[in-house]
Simulated assay, not measured.
Amino acid sequence: MNITVRLAQQQEADELLGRSPLAALIGMLLDQQIPMEWAFSGPHTIAQRMRVDDLDAHDIAVHDPEAFVALLSAKPAVHRYPGSMAKRIQQLCQYLVDHYDGDPLALWRDVSTGRELLARLNALPGFGKQKSQIFLALLGKQYGVTPEGWREAAGPYGEAGSYRSVADITGPESLAKVRAYKQEAKRAAKQATSGPTTPGTTRS
């Protein structure tokens, strides 16, 4: 696999994401409660600190847990919550070892439908429905993984021409559009939760 992506907005980090499906999976796992480009630069930081050119699920799965937490926690930290994310990454890699002989490409190499691929992604540790749909959209839009019905399985994230998620980021301009969409969605959700206020009243 050798794909040109601009997810991390850093050349070396993006090059790793383009050639390593495991790096892409780990980046997606890290994409939670931190900026998207920070999350997707994480795999490259991990590879640097492990002193390897490419990430290997077997190596990460058997890495000493305390040492792996320290590796993610060293400044600059790979994530806002490096301890919990270190555990999740090792769980993800162990799952790949147990179910796919450590080869993340096997997740989608032989799938025939988008629904099947979504089910496989949803079974990964740390991947809920939304994260799985976003990663499925990323695979379809940027990695050339397009089983039958992949857009439908990815839900709104699979829509062509949308700017909803990391699946739609191809450079700084699209990153800004996706960030604006996320901020608006968050604002709308907050407004819906708080509900309307009547004149002359305040909410605590």
Results as ranks from 00 to 15, higher is better:
148 E>T: 10
145 V>T: 02
162 S>H: 09
133 Q>E: 06
133 Q>V: 10
134 I>L: 03
142 Q>Y: 03
129 K>A: 06
136 L>K: 01
141 K>T: 08
129 K>W: 15
141 K>N: 11
147 P>D: 05
129 K>M: 09
136 L>S: 01
128 G>E: 10
114 G>L: 07
156 P>S: 08
144 G>N: 13
136 L>M: 05
133 Q>P: 12
114 G>I: 03
136 L>G: 00
131 K>T: 13
151 R>M: 07
146 T>P: 07
142 Q>K: 06
149 G>S: 13
138 L>T: 13
141 K>A: 03
134 I>F: 07
157 Y>G: 14
160 A>M: 08
145 V>W: 02
125 P>N: 12
154 A>D: 00
162 S>P: 12
117 L>P: 00
130 Q>N: 10
124 L>P: 14
143 Y>E: 09
137 A>R: 02
111 V>D: 06
138 L>N: 04
124 L>T: 08
154 A>K: 01
129 K>P: 13
153 A>T: 00
132 S>Q: 13
137 A>C: 11
123 A>I: 13
131 K>C: 08
133 Q>F: 03
162 S>G: 14
159 E>Y: 05
119 A>Q: 05
141 K>D: 01
151 R>S: 11
120 R>D: 07
111 V>T: 10
123 A>T: 08
141 K>R: 14
124 L>Q: 05
131 K>H: 11
147 P>H: 15
142 Q>I: 04
161 G>A: 11
127 F>S: 04
145 V>I: 05
151 R>A: 05
156 P>R: 11
133 Q>L: 06
154 A>N: 10
144 G>E: 04
114 G>V: 01
115 R>S: 07
121 L>V: 02
117 L>I: 01
129 K>G: 14
142 Q>V: 04
118 L>Q: 09
135 F>L: 10
131 K>G: 10
129 K>H: 11
141 K>E: 01
125 P>Y: 10
124 L>M: 10
128 G>C: 03
122 N>E: 14
142 Q>A: 12
115 R>E: 13
154 A>T: 04
117 L>T: 01
130 Q>F: 15
146 T>Y: 03
157 Y>K: 11
159 E>P: 01
128 G>W: 09
117 L>D: 01
114 G>H: 04
118 L>H: 05
128 G>A: 14
159 E>T: 09
117 L>E: 00
